[in-house]
Design a protein around this nucleic acid. Sequence first.
DNA 1: CTGAATCCATATGGATACTG
DNA 2: CAGTATCCATATGGATTCAG
Lengths: 122, 122
Amino acid sequence: MANYCKFEKALEIFTGKWKPVILLRLFANGTMRFGELQKAIPDITQKMLTQQLRELVHNDIVHREVYPEVPPKVEYSITEYGKGMANVLQVLNDWGESHMAHMDDLYGEGRKEEGAPAQRPS
Amino acid sequence: MANYCKFEKALEIFTGKWKPVILLRLFANGTMRFGELQKAIPDITQKMLTQQLRELVHNDIVHREVYPEVPPKVEYSITEYGKGMANVLQVLNDWGESHMAHMDDLYGEGRKEEGAPAQRPS
DNA sequence: CTGAATCCATATGGATACTG
DNA sequence: CAGTATCCATATGGATTCAG
């Protein structure tokens, strides 16, 4: 098996249009209901939210707790194992931040993208 | 502006079907000609190789050196700036490796696809 | 409330042919 | 040799509807 498939496996976890947001929300808020996630991420569709959550659950990053009530209630949270990827997220986040600054340096902030006001590192 | 866009920007760099392989090759070999890369990555098409390289060049990760000769000769290498992402690659690679082991633990090496929600109905 | 199932638009990647 | 251009298959994501 090729070496780079490790990268690809790793990348599959946060890749996709919504996984980063979902992970960020869950890391920040601890435990959230399905509806809360949906409210917190207004642009996501129910299909995508379900689908991405399922993949995260399958990868043991997210825990899914179903309460057999009426009306139904489902809570999602980061698993203990999932918490171990916090540093990966951090590294990615930090590098992404500095890389955006680098791109601004190279191409200027003006015409690069709309809605991206100066993002100063903290 | 949402925080997660930093992730997304970072992920765009290594995401796509071929960027990880290309980066790995260039990091390993230093400088490579177009044809060498193509030989080193047999399954890639020239369109994809060109396209992905262009994106990496645009992101200042890869340097493109054109020799005005006949026949043409173009060499690619990691830029100084690009070398700064080596640790990110390393972190990703390490986590990916351990994550694969974790998945094997959970699902067994032989029957990985069993409960996989993946993105495909039965 | 949560989420499965469809249908559809677009994005991404691949095959092939052509060029300086 | 390195790269474009074109056409095509499939993958991904979105809108909508239905159901426990």
